[in-house]
Design a protein around this nucleic acid. Structure first.
Lengths: 145, 145
DNA sequence: CGAATTCGTACTATTTTAGTAGGAATTCCA
DNA sequence: TGGAATTCCTACTAAAATAGTACGAATTCG
């Protein structure tokens, strides 16, 4: 199990934006620079997030992106589902009877998806930020040992 | 999150073998036929499972595969980890300090992996079989409503 | 011996992921 | 009012992962 680069980059940009919230607009280029992400790719990702209602944007000189809502009201689950793009290639219910192996695979997939969703849906962007600052603190400390 | 075909096929074959346990050897061709899987691909998968210690095989006429251990002693987690092939492209610890976004991605990946592993490691092949037969029963019932 | 089967390698095709190129549309501001 | 800055948009391209196939050697049974 691994998040795609697209998801990773999107998340990293959003984390940046959340840290700045509710300040003014930040440009894609700056976001890309401060997390060292490919700019053009990031642009496409940010655009998708705007369409998904997670970001607001302002075009033109002095424009950029910012969160559309406070971090406390943004679910990491929704965010990631949008990023993964998974256009829900949902298993179309097969006609007729399933083979035993197919049932097993189905059951397992359902269990895994449920576990995955639980982790993601129980987490807001605000909470994630908190975890990050804790972990960041530890990281700092380690340099002084 | 979705299991690969390789994993799916391997699991389906193993489910078949578990249903027959502790009977005699079953041939790849028969396994492929009864779950409608591509035979040559399945062969490669079964081979990997044998190398992983999940199956025993006998070559030559009258040969085939069978589980190396009773289903109760086979963990679905171990099985799937072998199937996924994940040659543990583990994040090599980056030198220096992590960016906040990177920390967030890391945290999330860890949480997701833990949840995933928990589901898989808490399940034996025997238990999975039981779930399948329950679900299969329900499926049968639905036809008679 | 000859048929049946696993074992093994090497190749091909398809799909998904990760980007890049190039420019139109909009907005600010001097 | 014109140009610089920025998002927005479409269409490619490149690379990697996935899903197989082809072909045959090695082994075993009867």
């Amino acid at each position: 199990m691994r998040l795609s680069k697209r998801t990773e980059y999107g998340l990293r940009a959003v984390v940046q934006l959340a840290k700045l919230w509710p300040n003014d607009y930040v440009q894609s280029r700056d976001l890309a620079k401060s997390e060292t992400l490919p700019n053009k790719f990031l642009e496409a990702i940010l655009l998708a997030l705007r369409r998904g209602g997670f970001l607001e944007s302002k075009v033109g000189s002095g424009g950029g992106y910012r969160l559309a809502r406070p971090p406390r009201e943004i679910s990491v689950g929704e965010l990631i589902r949008r990023l993964e793009g998974r256009l829900t290639v949902m298993d179309i219910a097969k006609p007729g009877e399933l083979l035993p192996g197919e049932i097993a695979v189905h059951l397992l997939n359902d269990k895994l998806t449920a576990a995955y969703d639980k982790v993601l849906d129980d987490l807001t962007l605000e909470q994630l930020l908190e975890l990050v600052s804790k972990a960041g603190g530890l990281q700092q400390q380690m340099y002084y040992i």
